[in-house]
Structures are given as structure tokens and as C-alpha cells.
Amino acid sequence: MSVINTMLKDLDKRQQAHSLDTLPVPDMQYVAAAPNGFSRLLPWVLLLLLSVCGMIGATIAWQKLIVLAQDKTQLEQDLQQAQRSTTEVVAQERALIQSVEPVLTNYQNVAAEKPLSQQSEVATAEINPSLLTANASTHAKTNISSAAANGDDAGMNADIKNTELKNTLTTRDVSDGGARQSTEADPSPIAGAMAVTEVKLTPAALAQKRFALGQTAQNEGQLAQAQEYFSEAIRLDPSLHQARQHLAALYYGQGRLGDADDTLAQGRVLYPEHVDYALLQARVYEASGAIDKALAVLTTIPDEHELAVQKWTMQSHLAQQVQQFTLAEQSYRQLARVEPNQAKWWMGLAYALDSQQEFLLAKQAYRQALALNGLSASAIAFIDQRLAQLGDVE
């Protein structure tokens, strides 16, 4: 065992003596890598690619130049063709006009030699050349317009104007001669001529138009103009009640109560069943202080009419003013029957009864008014005071 231990110790010492830390470390040297074959060929590859790209670009540019040259050549050919077409059309039209001129000259000579009664027949017989000329002119204009879409507008427009002028003069000569003779010989219109038919509106339609103009003028503050329109509308159609009412309202607003009264009175005479006139006239009388006239007019409105509530309201108010308490009582009873929840009608009825010394009925009406809402504080105070005064009355 001792021998083994001794060997192990010797081995350990040897390992320590040959440690890696004591080994010498040589200096590192950097050696460039040797160039390979692809690196030497790279510049030539790039040069080849640039050459190919340049050739492709040059080829594309050359093709574009060829296409542009072809387009230019085609455009020049189209312009030349359009100019030739224009020249041919103008020449054909001039030849046609020259062929028609002898016929027109012959027509004028014959028309001058024949009697007046036969000139209309000549005009009718020879009118076809003018129609032919007009048709030829229309056909020529169509062709010229087609050619103008492709070139030389300036020269072509000048030829068109000259041709149209000749056609117009030629056709006018024939038309004037034929029209004069046909007017003297035959009053019937020439076939193909445009007829203007006058549309006449009925008086009612004209009145509606005047009424609309009057409303517009009234809204714009042109009151004098509005009055003229409304007056004309009534003259054209007296049954246009809106125009009459607007006219009376304009007079009323300007303080011209007499004119308003006359306008409404005329409506009442012509249309007594139209009770709106009576209500408006009563307001005019009230504004002028003629309460008796207003009450008299209001009695013409039936109690079954839809304006009856307005009639009773105005009637009760005016009757109290002139102390006609019986009439006021009647009006307030009608109002309380129609609108039983209105406290003001019960108070008015109570006051009318109180004024007629119907104290017991008045107390009942006062209490009914207090039981409802809608009275002012002063009205409630008046009722309380009056009920206190009538407390012992049975």
C-alpha cells in the first residue's frame, strides 16, 4: 500500500509540473483568405448585366419612336381626307344652289306675268324647290359637321356661313312670295308652318294668379301693389273670398275703416251665407266705436255655425260695454254650456246676473267660478268681496 501511495504522489507531482498554465502561447497571425474564382468574375458579370439593360432600354425607346411616327403619319392622312371631304361637300352644295337658281328665276318671272288670283297657285306649285333647297342645306350641314370633327375648323366654318346665307336668302325669297300670295288668295296656313295657339285663361284662373301676386306683394311690404292685385282678383272673380278678406284686412290695418266696411258689406250682399264677412265687419264696427252696429251684425250669425263661439265671445263683451246685460247673460250661458270648465264664462255670467239684481243666481255663478281654475288674483278678490256682500241674500 505504501508503494501505491508513493506512486500516486509522484504522479501528482508530475501533473502539477506540466500544468497548462506554464505552457508557452504562440502569437496569432492573421492571414488573408485566398481569392476564389467568383470574385474575379463579378465585375464582368455586372458589366454584362448593364449592357443587356441598356440594349433592352434602347429597343423599347426605338419601338416607341416608330409608333409615334406611325401615329403622326396617320393623323396627317386623316386631316388631308377631312379637307378633301369638306371641299367636295361645299362643291356639291354650290352646284345644287346653281341648279335651283334658274327654277327660282323662272318662278319670279311667271309670278310677275300671271294675274294676282293665279300667283298663289304658282307659289304653291313652285314651293317644292325651296323645300328641296332646305333639305339639301340640312344634309350638307350634317356632312360638314362630321368632317369638322377631324380638322380645319376655320375655313370650313367660313364656307358653312356663306352656304347658310345663300340658302337663307333663296328660301326667304320663295317663302315671302308664296306667303304674300297665299295670304291674299287663301287665308288658310301653309302646311308645315309652326302655328302659335293662344291659351286664354278663365277669369277664375286669372283671379287666382292676381291673388297670388297680391300675397307676394303683401309679404314684401308693397301694400299699395297688393291692394291693386286683390281688387283686380275680386273684379275677375267676386266669389274669391280670400282676396276680399285680405283686401279688407289691408284697409283695416291702415285705419281705412270705411273702405274695409264697404268691401265686407259688398261680400255680405253677394254671399249672405258666407258669415265670415259678418264677423269681420263687426270687428270693424267695434274699432270705429259703432257697438250697436257690431251687435246687430253679430246676430246674423247662426248659433249652429262653427263661428258661433267667436260670435258669443264678442257679443258678451260688447253687450257688457253698452250695459245690455240680458244679451250678455244669454251669450255667457251659451259659452258656459259649450265650455263648462272655463271660469271666466261663469264669472261673466255671474256679473251679468248680478247687474240684473238676480243675486241668488249670481251667487251660484260666482261660487262655480271660484271652484274652477284660471282666474286672476284680482278676479278672485272681487268675487270674494261680492260674495261677502251678498252673504245674507237668500
Rank of each mutant, 00 (worst) to 15 (best):
S2T: 14
S2F: 05
V3P: 11
I4S: 11
L8H: 12
L8M: 13
D12G: 12
S19C: 06
D21K: 13
D27P: 15
Y30P: 15
Y30N: 15
P35M: 08
P35Q: 07
G54H: 02
I60P: 07
I66L: 10
Q70Y: 12
T73E: 12
Q83M: 14
Q83V: 14
S85C: 05
T86K: 12
E88G: 07
V90I: 15
E93I: 09
N109W: 00
L116D: 07
N128F: 02
A134P: 00
T142Y: 06
N143E: 13
I144A: 07
A148Y: 05
A154S: 14
G155H: 12
I160K: 13
N167F: 07
N167P: 07
G177Q: 02
Q181C: 07
G192T: 01
M194L: 10
Q208C: 08
K209L: 13
R210W: 05
G214R: 01
E220H: 12
A224P: 01
A224G: 06
E228T: 12
S231T: 15
E232M: 08
Q242I: 12
Y251R: 02
G258H: 04
A260D: 04
V269T: 15
Y271P: 02
P272R: 00
E273M: 05
H274L: 02
V275R: 01
V275N: 01
A282H: 04
S288P: 08
D292I: 08
A294I: 11
D303P: 13
E304N: 11
E306T: 14
T313P: 01
Q315N: 09
S316P: 05
H317R: 14
H317C: 03
A319M: 04
Q323M: 10
Q323H: 13
F325S: 11
T326H: 06
T326N: 07
S331V: 12
R337F: 08
Q342I: 13
L349C: 04
L349Y: 07
A352C: 09
F359H: 06
A365Q: 13
Y366Q: 04
Y366W: 09
Q368F: 02
A371P: 04
L372I: 13
G374C: 03
A377I: 13
R386Q: 02
L390D: 00
V393R: 03
